[in-house]
Every structure is written in C-alpha cells, then in structure tokens.
C-alpha cells in the first residue's frame, strides 16, 4: 500500500534514552506525500514534528533511536540504506532548512564556502568549481552575491541567514525540501517575505515540501495538505481548507478555536490540560485525558489513522 508517490512513512517509532527514562517520542507516525506536493506538519512543541523530519534524514542520534517503521522515499526504504547510501540521499535528493538559520551556519566558514560545499557534494565537483553556481544561488534568493559571499554567519541578519540556507538547500535541486520551522525565529514581516520566497522558488523548482510549523495558519496557507500531530502521533490529515472548515479530531478543533481571527468577535478557547509526559504517556489515545468527548475505549486502545472522507484521515474513536 503506498499512499504517497514520493514519501510514505508508516508505523515510525522513535525513542530517546534519558536519565529520567525512555521518551517515546514517535509512537507510530503515518505520513505520506506526492511529488511536488506540499505538506504542512503542525503541532505543539514536543509533539514529534522535528523528530519526524530528522528521522527522514536519518539524523536521529544517540541518545535517540529509530526502533520501528518504514520510510519509503522514491521507492527505497531509507531505514534500510547504509550510511554511504544515505549520504547520497542527504543534500542531493532531500535538503533541509532549520529554525535558527544563524546557528545552522558554521560560524568559522564564509557563507559562500558553505553553499559551494553543498553544491560540490551534490554534483561530485570540486568546491572551487562550484562557486559560479553559488552566485546564481544567492541571486536566486534575492541576495547581492558580491556582498554576501564573503560574510560570516554572525554578520547576517536572521532573514538573510535563512535566505542563505534556502539558497544552499535549493541549489542542489532536491526532490524534497524539509523546512523545520523556517520562520519561527524571524520577525513577522521577514516571515512573510521568506514564505513568499519559498513559495516562488518551490513552484519554479517543482520541489515537494514538508513544512513543519506550530502555526496552523501558515501551514494551511502554504501547503496543499496539513497533518496535525499530537504527542508522537499524526492524528488528522486533510486538505488545507478542509482542516480549517471541517476539523474532525477534538484536538484539531481545539487548536483552531485557539487561533484569534482579526475582525471577528470570537471567544478564544484553549485546550484544557497539559501536553503529556512522553516518558510515561497516557494509555490508549494519548489525547484522551484532555478530551471532552473521551469514553472508555479511548483509555484502552490507540486509534488508527483511518480515511473518513476523500483525502481526509483522522485517528479518533469517535469516527469509527
């Protein structure tokens, strides 16, 4: 069964060993994506969005561990590849941008070098030969290459640094771009610019995108589909408009009710309770202690992600 032609993740489990005990960070994540499609992954801090992204890149390291699942990418299960084979996927077929762009750049190398290095690796050419493409890449993200190429990370603003990261990520023409909260650390006005830029470049480059964000608004605006995660599970997936207009999962509903809307008088409501401790997560549906509609079965059984309508999946006992 493949649901996505480019990526299909099933039953992905990741744990982290800590001194407090084992954190069950991903508890059977299901996620899929077609070529050129954009998928938003939304959820609170600690719900496993970034861990999912890093799992795709196979960058989960000690004390973390991928213990189960499959990550099909372009016809291969990434979890079965050797490190060397994986290095041909990273930075060639999948690239990634991060939340803190300044910290994500190496402080002791010039920006130009870092982009050149990436291009050189993806095309098997020398770093020196890659520099012509560095110029194009910088121009592409709207930076003056002459002024930027010799700068260090600490000499950039957050917005510039994220542009550099985007240049670096897209210069290799990846099939898939994973953007992990690419705008969360930036000023609101810069956020909009960066998203606009991404939108444009990704349309031109025909890259598929997984956009990880805690902002449902950004996700639904930028993406074709949105997946909502809670405590290590994907609990609802639907086309962007639909998730806003007809949310099914109680958690998704709560999430939407807590978004303020300008010009519309609306009672803002939060979701009662706190995010569960993943060392000792609740039994059954991990959301049930906070759910108004919980009944006995929720305490006993983890609901599976099931298709309810065309393209609309939900993991909740209320619906099946």
């Amino acid at each position: 069964m493949t649901r996505g032609s480019l990526v299909d993740i099933s039953k992905l489990r990741v744990i982290f060993h800590t001194y407090r005990g084992t954190i069950k960070a991903l508890n059977g994540v299901e996620l899929w994506l077609n070529e050129e499609e954009r998928l938003g992954v939304v959820g609170e801090t600690g719900c496993g969005k970034s861990v999912t992204a890093l799992s795709i890149m196979r960058l989960i390291e000690q004390p973390g561990e991928i213990i189960d699942g499959k990550i099909w990418f372009n016809g291969k299960d990434l979890l079965q590849l050797s490190e060397d084979e994986m290095d041909k996927v990273r930075g060639r077929q999948i690239s990634m941008i991060f939340q803190e762009p300044i910290a994500a750049l190496n402080p002791v190398f010039k920006v130009g070098f870092q982009i050149a290095e990436t291009i050189a690796h993806s095309q098997n050419i020398s770093i020196n030969d890659a520099y012509t493409q560095v110029r194009e890449a910088l121009e592409m993200v709207g930076l003056d290459w002459q002024r930027t190429i010799d700068l260090y990370a600490h000499e950039l603003s957050g917005g510039m640094a994220q542009r550099v990261m985007i240049a670096m990520a897209l210069a290799v023409r990846p099939k898939l771009l994973i953007a992990d909260e690419p705008t969360s650390a930036l000023d609101v006005t810069i956020q909009a610019q960066i998203l606009e830029l991404l939108d444009k470049l990704v349309s031109v480059g025909k890259n598929a995108v997984i956009l990880i964000t805690h902002d449902l608004g950004i996700a639904s605006e930028f993406c074709d589909r949105v997946a909502v995660m809670y405590a290590g599970n994907v609990i609802e997936v639907a086309p962007s408009q639909e998730i806003f207009n007809e949310p099914l999962h109680p958690y998704t509903k709560g999430l939407i009710d807590s978004i303020p809307v300008v010009g519309r008088a609306k009672e803002l409501t939060g979701i009662a309770g706190v995010v569960p401790d993943l060392v000792d997560p609740p039994s059954g549906c991990r959301f049930h202690p906070r759910c108004k509609h919980a009944f006995e079965r929720c305490n006993l059984e983890l609901p599976e992600l099931v298709q309810i309508k065309a393209n609309h999946y939900v993991a909740c006992h209320l619906y099946h």
Binding site: L54, R90, G91, E117, S122
Partner: peptide, 15 residues
Amino acid sequence: RQDFIRTAKAKGIGK
C-alpha cells in the same frame, strides 16, 4: 551538538 553540525550532516558530506 550544535545546529550547524546538523546542517553539515544534512548536506550528506559524510562523517
């Protein structure tokens, strides 16, 4: 442990 090491690893340049 730093972010830029994650970036470097994500480039696939090898350990």
